[in-house]
Simulated assay, not measured.
Amino acid sequence: MQLSEIKNLKIAVVGAGYGGAAAAKALSLLGAQVDVYEQASRIGEVGAGIGLRPSTMNRFRAWGIFDAIAGVSSPSDYFEILSATGDPIMKEAWPAAGEQAHTHLIHRGDFIDALLGVLPEGMVHLGHRLESLQDRGDRSVLTFAGGKAVEADLVVGADGIKSVVRRQLFSERDPVFSGEHAYRTVIPVDAAHGMVVDDNLRMYIGRGTKIYLLPLRHRGQVSFDVTALNPDGTWAPRVTRDDLLATVAGFDERLVNIARDLDMDTVNVRAVYDIDPVDTWHTDSVVLVGDAAHSMLHHQGQGANSAIEDGGALADALRDADSVKEALALYQATRKPVTDELQRISRQGWTEEEISDVFPGQKPAAAAPKE
């Protein structure tokens, strides 16, 4: 599209998470009129670490925000997989992308703060919970709790795994329980019992349990994450210290000691869900990005990275296509094959034997790889 056409576009982004903030930044750089509507009254991410891949950091460099992200992250050279007791299984350098050879490890809260911090003042509107969306072809009307209505030429649904935009226009299927729990917290490096000596991610694999140590040494911390098979699909299950210690039994005693020392009030406990692939991500004036389009399990560490790539690909498509309608089709054609495959691979986190230990006599579709 001509830049003059893009500058006349009124774009409403629903959701101020990674995908929404990234899409807003990329689209605003094209000159579009962008407003972001977030249901929360304040922005905050539960403390845990993630890795931003080289291709993601390339996007940030292209958008002129690399320094803002790099300033609150640590570059990592490689990731390592070890047995529960610390025997090496695999060690690989992060896949390079152009001039970027490092994955940057970052605290989720620092990441969203940095992303929102590079958006123009007044672009993000908090306390706007979407209630309904009317797709009228070449434009849409969004109605928020309290009655406020907004018209837009393009609506970007970036409202997460429970997306209202997705449920109203694209798929009413519920999120899918994976058959696992995630327990996440951030501790001081000094509390890691000497296990964090550099800036590289390590994963320890036991039967039905994985422990991730993700250093955040730029802030003197480490993200301690446990993923374990568990049949309880309650969104926020209750887990005691004894439960956690039973889960990590048999691991390196230093990892067990980390778990034993935790303040359980600081541990984020959740059942892990994703969604089945959505057949269509767009109409002529509404499109999905990030978890709203393709929420995936965290085994590949690609959820946030995929959301950022979505935002960049959407802006690229608007720039390269002749109309909004064509741009949305191009965006889906570019991104959906990639995320469909990532969703598929991410569901292959456990062996059938591990699953049968937790789900005796059955191979639950939610916990097993799906075709």
Rank of each mutant, 00 (worst) to 15 (best):
E80K: 11
A313I: 02
T247Q: 03
D322S: 13
G20W: 07
G361Q: 08
H128F: 15
G208K: 10
Y212R: 01
Q39W: 04
S83G: 14
T143N: 09
M90K: 13
T339I: 05
G220S: 03
R59Q: 11
V186W: 01
R260M: 10
R136M: 14
A21S: 15
W94T: 11
V358G: 00
N8E: 15
Q33L: 11
A23T: 09
I205L: 02
L244S: 03
W235D: 13
P277W: 12
A304N: 07
G160I: 11
Y37E: 09
K210N: 12
R335N: 07
K91Y: 09
T339L: 00
V278D: 04
V186T: 13
G349I: 04
E180G: 00
I211H: 00
S140A: 15
G51F: 10
I161L: 15
V164L: 06
R61A: 14
A315F: 08
T103D: 07
V272H: 00
D261L: 01
L142W: 06
L216E: 01
R202M: 13
Q221A: 13
S73L: 10
D198C: 07
H128E: 05
T247F: 05
D77I: 05
R173H: 08
D159P: 05
G250V: 02
R219S: 13
D174C: 03
D153H: 15
D340F: 02
A152R: 06
L115V: 11
D35P: 00
L27H: 01
R319A: 15
V72R: 00
A329K: 07
Y204N: 07
Y331W: 14
L130Y: 03
L244D: 03
V34E: 04
R129W: 07
I161V: 15
H125N: 14
M123K: 09
Q343W: 05
Q302V: 14
I50T: 11
A32D: 06
H193M: 09
V272F: 00
A304L: 04
A32T: 06
Q343L: 13
H193R: 10
K25H: 14
A68H: 11
R139A: 12
R42H: 14
G17H: 10
A21K: 08
S73Q: 10
D35R: 15
